[in-house]
């Protein structure tokens, strides 16, 4: 190998290569691969944790949105129910007012009829009483004075009353 400049020796190059190949294999198996695997596992573990946290956050956001939707729907439902109940209440009130009015009118009408009837009865009774009083008075007068005068007077009085 003396012809090659710088004393380059192919056999020694191959020995260096052999040496480095063994070193490469040993370092790869003993150090590089286990450390890298551990780092990747840890990275994966934290990535999984991160993903789980993101999933939980997303689920919480979805729950929050669903809850807000439900609350909104419930509010709308309540509002609609309230409106419906208000309308029913209004209708019921109007019906009640109408019925009360009808009752009142009937009562007033009945009262009016009763009053008229009572008035007529009173008038009739009063007339009868007056008649009786007058009759009684006449009878008294007749008894006290002469019967004819009394009778004439009575007739005059009756005629006057009739007029």
């Amino acid at each position: 190998m003396t012809g090659i400049p710088l004393n380059i020796d192919w056999q020694q190059i191959l020995l260096h290569l052999f040496n480095f190949t063994i070193l490469f294999g040993a370092l790869y198996i003993l150090l590089y691969k286990p450390v890298k695997n551990y780092m990747e596992q840890r990275e994966k573990h934290y990535a999984d944790m991160d993903k789980a946290a993101e999933d939980n956050l997303r689920a919480a956001e979805e729950s929050k949105t669903a809850y807000a939707d439900k609350v909104r729907a419930f509010d709308e439902e309540t509002r609609a129910e309230r409106t419906k109940l208000n309308k029913e209440l209004e209708a019921s009130r109007e019906r009640q007012i109408a019925a009360a009015k009808a009752d009142a009118e009937k009562i007033v009408s009945d009262a009016r009829i009763e009053a008229n009837r009572e008035k007529e009865e009173i008038i009739a009774s009063a007339q009868k009483e007056i008649t009786d009083m007058v009759t009684g008075a006449m009878e008294k007068l007749t008894l006290e004075q002469s019967a004819s005068d009394a009778f004439d007077q009575f007739l005059d009085a009756a005629e006057a009353r009739e007029a």
Binding site: Q12, H16, F20, L27, L30, L31, P34
Partner: peptide, 30 residues
């Protein structure tokens, strides 16, 4: 076995040292 440049022997020693270090790390540290 044969006469070589001192660098080759140094290479074997360095490789041996590194492999020993890697072995210690693999057994006791990793």
């Amino acid at each position: 076995l044969m006469d070589v440049n001192p660098g080759l022997l140094a290479g074997f020693i360095v490789s041996g040292f590194l492999i020993l270090l890697a072995l210690i790390c693999r057994i006791f540290i990793i």
